[in-house]
Simulated assay, not measured.
Amino acid sequence: MTSKLYIHDINPNSLVNGPGTRAVVWVQGCSIGCPGCFNPGTHSKMSATDEGADPERLGRELGQLNVDGLTLSGGEPLEQPEAVSELIRSFRQVNPGTVLIFSGYAPQRIFASPAARSAILLADAVLAGPYVEGTDPSEIWNSKQLILVTDRIKPDTLTPERRMEVSFQSDDTLRLSGYPDKRLREIFSNLMKVGLSDD
């Protein structure tokens, strides 16, 4: 039986969420709640009446895009490990690209869960561990540990940078993605409050 994948957002063409051009899925739901998290809107879980996505169908759709790979972030992807596994398998059936997972789980927690372990073994690399906000760009992932499942993603392609992208959404909102520090997030938030002038 197919699981449902609860999704916060999807970017079919991102340049700041892993090496190359990537399709990015931010899942909905995270029980960790790291202070300073980039995506606090992803923390709450979907209710029982919310309709999730079919991960097999979504994987095929994303796999048909002209991308170098798939990135899963959130929220916490490994709180939906069965659906994430289905998504990755389906993506790989139509796209030879790499798969990268951002997880707030420490490696020990991942390895202790058979379902989470199975999910990461379908990926090429996992950046694992809770987010800890730092002030220096080199500290973006200082709390993370890189788990290389294959040699298809090189560690030097995951060097953290303060790169960002802003994109228009289908619901006429803007999405800020990448690794902005607190100051840059505040600037973006203030711009959103002011709005864009018609002059």
Score class of each variant (00 low, 15 high):
24 V>Y: 11
87 L>T: 12
167 S>D: 05
115 A>W: 03
130 P>R: 09
170 S>K: 11
149 V>K: 09
44 S>N: 13
142 N>I: 01
98 T>A: 07
153 I>N: 08
106 A>H: 09
168 F>G: 13
105 Y>V: 07
166 V>C: 01
57 R>L: 15
121 L>R: 10
42 T>I: 01
114 P>W: 05
21 T>C: 04
1 M>H: 15
154 K>V: 11
38 F>H: 13
49 T>D: 14
59 G>D: 13
81 P>L: 04
183 R>W: 04
76 E>T: 09
16 V>P: 00
115 A>R: 14
12 P>K: 08
11 N>E: 12
118 S>T: 08
19 P>C: 05
38 F>N: 02
146 L>D: 13
173 T>K: 10
190 N>M: 15
163 R>I: 03
164 M>R: 02
103 S>W: 02
121 L>A: 06
61 E>D: 14
11 N>Q: 06
136 D>V: 08
164 M>N: 03
113 S>K: 05
49 T>M: 12
163 R>L: 06
37 C>K: 05
51 E>M: 11
26 W>F: 15
155 P>H: 08
47 S>L: 09
62 L>T: 10
32 I>E: 10
97 G>D: 04
133 E>Q: 12
161 E>K: 06
54 D>S: 12
112 A>H: 07
165 E>M: 00
41 G>E: 14
34 C>G: 08
192 M>A: 14
34 C>K: 04
11 N>Y: 03
12 P>G: 11
4 K>W: 07
105 Y>H: 13
162 R>E: 01
7 I>N: 08
193 K>L: 13
99 V>D: 10
9 D>A: 15
199 D>A: 10
188 F>C: 09
33 G>L: 02
145 Q>G: 00
